[in-house]
Amino acid sequence: MATDMVVATLIGVGMGHYLDEWLGLHPWMTVLFFLFGAVAGFRAVYRAAQEGSSQAP
């Protein structure tokens, strides 16, 4: 679960960084996609918690 959280956030940051390089919008895309990634991570944790304990570690 912690893995889901970290991974999603890092992917968000990575995508934001790449978009910034591409569009020249430093640092806005990075910040925005960091938030997206964090939300995706929270959602994954939330779903895993809802589904029960089968995906615990």
């Binding site: 893995t3 991974v7 968000g12």
Partner: peptide, 25 residues
Amino acid sequence: PLMVPIEIISFLARPVSLSVRLFAN
């Protein structure tokens, strides 16, 4: 516009968290 990037991130996170979870454990 908010949800689609989140969905894409979630989808991309799948193989990464799948591999990282096993490797890290």
